[in-house]
């Protein structure tokens, strides 16, 4: 897999689907990346203790941290193993990346999901709210890119 072909996204997509399925079975939750990461950041919660312990206690934090560490490790290994996986072409100045990060963090936690939780899992099980969210973030992202690439670049 030194050269990137359209088999790359197909194989990668299948792996992402399998990984999400495995994490769903193990955790009993929709393992969307923004939800997993966001809940890991919650140190205090107004939820009742019974709910709070399962999600935000040590047990809830441990599996979420392990899953995300696996994600980072799996990516690092792939970057090292395959040239096609290591391709990285920066598109935006770092200051734009910081603003984008703020918006992505805020928006995904407000909207209850990102490309994985809504886009892959929610759409996969036919959840109407996830389909709506996916259409909205795809459309706004496309409009943003259209404007940025033509008006700013």
């Amino acid at each position: 897999m030194d050269h990137y072909t359209l088999l790359n996204p197909l194989i990668g997509g299948i792996l992402i689907g399998l990984a999400s399925l495995l994490a769903t079975v193990l955790s009993g939750k929709i393992p969307g990346i923004s939800g997993v990461f966001g809940r890991l950041l919650v140190l205090a919660t107004p939820d009742p203790p019974s709910v709070a312990a399962a999600t935000y206690g040590v047990a809830g934090k441990t599996w979420r941290a392990v899953f995300l560490l696996g994600l980072i490790g799996g990516a690092a290994l792939s970057f090292a193993l395959w040239q096609s996986a290591a391709i990285f072409r920066p598109m935006r100045p770092l200051v734009v990346m910081a603003i984008a990060g703020l918006l992505v963090g805020f928006g995904t936690r407000l909207g209850g999901g990102c490309t994985s939780g809504h886009g892959v899992c929610g759409v996969g099980i036919g959840a109407k709210d996830s389909m709506a969210a996916t259409l909205i973030f795809m459309a706004t992202a496309m409009v943003t890119v259209f404007i940025y690439n033509r008006a700013i670049l």
């Binding site: 990060g101 928006g107 407000l110 909207g111 973030f137 943003t144």
Partner: peptide, 26 residues
């Protein structure tokens, strides 16, 4: 509103949460 704000950030940076975390590995 949340999905729209996410889309704005995604289009600006080209990162959604998964790929952003994955690139920490690089």
């Amino acid at each position: 509103i949340g999905a729209a704000i996410f889309g704005l950030g995604w289009g600006l940076g080209g990162f959604c949460p998964g790929p952003a975390l994955a690139n920490l590995g690089g």
